[in-house]
Each structure stands twice: as C-alpha cells, then as structure tokens.
Design a protein around this nucleic acid. Structure first.
Ligand code: FE2
Ligand code: FE2
Ligand code: FE2
Ligand code: FE2
Lengths: 214, 214
DNA sequence: GCCAATGTTTAGGCGAACCGAAACCCCCTG
DNA sequence: CAGGGGGTTTCGGTTCGCCTAAACATTGGC
C-alpha cells in the first residue's frame, strides 16, 4: 500500500507496542508522551495515517491499527529487534546500548539487508531483551507472561523479557546476572530471590520492566 | 563545529568526490546534476554551508571545501566505504549492489557502530571498488592513477579503482573477472588485453570508470 | 443535570529541503 | 565592445513534521 516515512513508522510502532503486552488501545495523549512530542502533532499525523488506511480513529476516540497498519508496525518491530540482536551478537554491544542505534537503523536498512542479517544470525526468534522477533509475514510468537510488579509474592518464574526503555535498569540487571532465561522468585515489589537462594534488591522501577512466566 | 544534516553531508561528500581524482573545483551546476536536484536548491544549501564554515564560495564562483568541510566530507566517505566493505565481506552483497544501501546507512550509523564495523573488518584501507577508505583523522592514502580512457594504447597496468556509479559496468566487469588488482593492457578506448592474452571488449563508458596504475 | 477538568482538535507558524519561473551576472562571440 | 547565451541567484511556493495557543468535546464529580 502507501509508503511510510520514518516518523509515521514510529507512530505505528508505538501504537503497536502499547497493545503488545496489554490489550487496551492507546490514546493520543499517551502516544504523544511516548513519542516525546506535542499532542497536536499526533492529531495531525493520525489524520494522515487514517487517510492512508493504517489506523482507525474516530475523533476524540482511541487509536487502533488496521490490518495494514499492524503489518507495517510488526515490520518495523522486526527490523528493530533483528538489528538489536545483530549488534549484540556480532559487534560487541551490550543489551543496554543497542536500543538507540536500532531506533535509527530500523528506518534505514533495505529489505535486502534485513533478510541478509536475519539469515546471518540464523533466524533468531527473540532479541537480547527477550522480545519476540515477528516473522516476515507479521506473525509473532506470544507467550503468557506476568509483569513482576503484578506477580504475587512467592511467585516463581523464568524471566521472559526485560523492557529496554531504561538502560539503567538493564545495566543493573546485567550486573546481577539477570536476563531472559534467569529463574527467580518474587519476594516483594522490590526484592527477588535468585536460584542460589540469595535475596536481590531491584532497582527502582525494575519490577515494572520485567516479565516472568506465569 | 556545527552539526550536519544528511542532505548537507551529501553536498559535502559530492564536492569532495569531485576533487578526489581531479583537482578542479566543482560548480553549482555540476553539483546540482550530480545530486539530481535543481540548481536553485544548490544555491540555497551552499549559503547555509558557507555560513557554517564548511565551504568557501564567492557568488557566481566555484565551490571549495574549507578544512572543516573536508573533514566532514572525508568522514562521510569513510562511513560509506566501510559500509560497502562490510556488506560485501560479511553479508554476501556483490560490488554492484552495495552503493545504494551505503548511501542511506552512511547517514544513519553512530560513531560507535562505525568503529565497531571498522574493527570487525580489521581496519581495511580500500572498499570493494578499490576506493581508499579515509582514516578516522581524515587522511587518505593517494596513489597516482590514470583513467583507462586517458591511457595511451599499449599502456599496461593494474586496476586500482572502478567507479561504483554505474552498476551495469560493475556487473559486466565482474563477469569478466576484472576488479581491483587485475592486470590489463590498453588496446584502444574500448578494448583491453587480459593477462592470458585474450582481448576483452569493454562495455560502453567502462573506460571512463576504470583507473589504472601509471 | 451542570460544569469544570482533562483530553483533543484547530489555527497559525516555523525550519528544512526541495521546486519552477524569472531576474540577473559573466564572459565569449562576432 | 555590444550582445546574447549559459550559468547562477532570487523569489514565491510546496510538503513534511514539528511547535504553541486557543477553541472545543467528553466526562465524571457534585
Ligand atoms: Fe529496542
Ligand atoms: Fe524509530
Ligand atoms: Fe559507493
Ligand atoms: Fe548519502
């Protein structure tokens, strides 16, 4: 369908990301905050994206992706996560350093290069933060997960995913050896128990960035 | 000094490229043609680049880079050529496929990623077309060369560099096994003799794209 | 059931990068 | 040395993506 600009792709990606782990649609206000821009700018772009058939929007209502919009969004997410994986596996980046670089490159690489990277990496299914990498057809493996902050004390599980929004949290977790695949048990909202039995205090907000198996 | 936009970087790069192998400064008209834009657009950007101290320009005169401008230009060229080298060496691209991809990525990668790629490749000094890769300080190895079209019949030399502007020429040369390092002798403007002794007809314009040792 | 807070949209504007048309300058030709 | 033609610049205009300020719609508290 219609081509998309880097700015439009970031809108679609952010709308998609909001429903990736929680199903309620995003509002213009939240979208503006996430993108770091003024609400009026969102209104404007939303008008274009709706006219191009990528989102559905009734005035003063929430924003939902059309099938075409979801396809575009997952394509951008696929690029972002493959690039992050490539930076960590091939070029010595740590998982707290890759997000900003991927944010730019996701709009710059060709389909040809994307598929070359994918093949080079052996078609990975998750990025360094545990986020699933959508397939080229837009399909995404989805695993039931619970946010650590929402898990009851005593809940034990495996780390599925850590949000890459705050590099500080990523660094503190890496220092503790915690990452996707780590086993841990919830003690309270700010403390977890590691497999060795030791208690580990979490950085502020870290509980809101870690997803565990149910 | 001042930051540069992708568009400005392409102006600087193109001004630099014009003098890389021939020393006469470029004119606005030629620059507009090379960039595929209208002359009036060049006037406008030239004003900004001159105000920012990257080029020297007297009205109705040619365009020359200041030291700061040359530094920026070589930095972009370095990115471009390292990316081309990486695409060929690591990701299975052929030398006729890399230019357009590099044209975009040269404006998108961070310094961090640039240096990681450089290290990953072992600090190469030439790209797949034989173009020298400027060092991080802007210095460039320069080898005396002669354009095949300008070489007298009978001149024998090694291919130093092939312009990547026309992918068709690159493909036809690759089919004939000709690339940087190949030995050949000039028969006439459209024919060369290969080491095995056989005559090889050149594609139209290929003689204007191949540089030989003196 | 009214009204103010909150969220959304409209209106007007800005900088970047481009365009075509028209004015202008330079210099070569006759 | 007077034109005239080709290159250059100026001028007004466009699109994109953002902004602020002000108008406006929705909704929930009283
Ligand atoms: Fe990321
Ligand atoms: Fe992005
Ligand atoms: Fe190139
Ligand atoms: Fe470029």
């Amino acid at each position: 369908m219609k081509p998309t600009t880097p700015a439009a792709e970031d809108y679609l990606k952010t709308i998609y990301a909001h429903t990736e782990w929680q199903p309620d649609p995003i509002t213009p206000r939240v979208l503006a905050t996430r993108l770091g821009i003024a609400p009026s700018s969102v209104t404007e772009m939303v008008k274009k994206l709706a006219a191009d058939g990528f989102i559905a929007h009734v005035p003063y209502g929430p924003l939902t992706l059309t099938p075409a919009g979801r396809m575009r969004a997952t394509a951008v997410v696929r690029r972002h996560r493959l690039i992050e994986t490539w930076l960590v596996r091939e070029l010595g980046y740590t998982w707290d350093e890759v997000h900003d670089e991927a944010e730019v490159l996701e709009h710059a690489i060709s389909d040809r290069l994307l598929e070359a990277i994918d093949a080079h990496l052996g078609h990975p299914t998750a990025d360094p933060h545990g986020d699933p990498i959508p397939a080229a057809d837009g399909s995404t493996a989805r695993v039931p997960a619970v946010l650590l902050a929402d898990a009851p004390p005593g809940h034990a599980g495996t780390v599925l995913r850590v949000s890459d929004r705050d590099p500080t949290i990523l660094r503190s977790l890496a220092d503790a050896g915690i990452g996707p695949g780590s086993r841990l048990a919830v003690v309270d909202a700010n403390t977890v128990r590691l497999p060795a039995g030791e208690l580990h205090p979490l950085a502020p907000d870290a509980a809101g960035a870690i997803w565990l198996t149910r």
